[in-house]
Amino acid sequence: MFLFCSYSHSTMQTQNRQQRLAALRDTIANIERKPALAEMRARAFDGAADGFPRLPGGLLQDVCTDAVRNGGASLGFALGQVRTLFTPKRLAVLYLQLAADAQFFGLPYGPGLSSFGLDPAQLVIVRASDMQDLLWVAEEALACRAVAGIVADIGGAPEMLDFTASRRLSLRTAESGTSLFLLRYGADRPASAAHLRWHLAPHRSGRKPFDDRAPGPARWGLTLERGNTGQNTREWILEWTGNAFKSLPDRAGKTRQHLPGTPVSLPLPALLGNPISQTG
């Protein structure tokens, strides 16, 4: 796609220029095709709370974590988000994994899903033999309008899933309204066209009533590394209440409070696509 801009210094009017800029922003917003995030931001600027946002469907999210031993935590985070995406017409979750990785990552466990608050009958487990099949399944499932979310255990940075492939997936997710979560393990951050990229670390669990020595409700420490949810915070500590995420104050004991409307001082390429001006 090409954009042609021509300037003529003598006749350029300020108002005209403003209109053209607005038109360009609209074009770029169309190119970016992130209707879900745009909607998010619009909602956030309406004065939503500063807690963890309820993210809409249609987002490609990279969930990066440092080691495979955090696999339970990242699966929990993804499924916790999928749980908010269920509608009467979208009731299925797909979990994709390479068949050879089952022992290394572990497989989703039915009774564990029910104790997490998810009906195991809603989960379809697909065990692909190679990454090509896995990506094909992801794309095929995105086209199905009854799938609420897809969770894929990617592992590290497979060659097959390069920027082009993830761009393709991100366009498909934006079109379909189904969310796709790519669970990645390891310290490196491969090129990806994901709408959001999280860095996830497990966090000491909450308090279990009547037993201080026992692990309580699950908690996650999350950092939003890429993308913008419209919130002013980029770090959260979340707790699973059995139904939804609850945002907790961080270690310093206070929630990060920003005044609503304060400009976010971070390099955000996605802001270009935001038709609402950030600078006022």
């Binding site: 339970g72 929990g76 089952a102 572990g106 497989l107 989703p108 466990y109 564990g112 104790s115």
Partner: peptide, 11 residues
């Protein structure tokens, strides 16, 4: 239903 079970089980 109300037992604590892990989300991932190793085969």
């Amino acid at each position: 239903g109300d037992r604590d079970r892990p989300l991932r089980l190793l085969p």
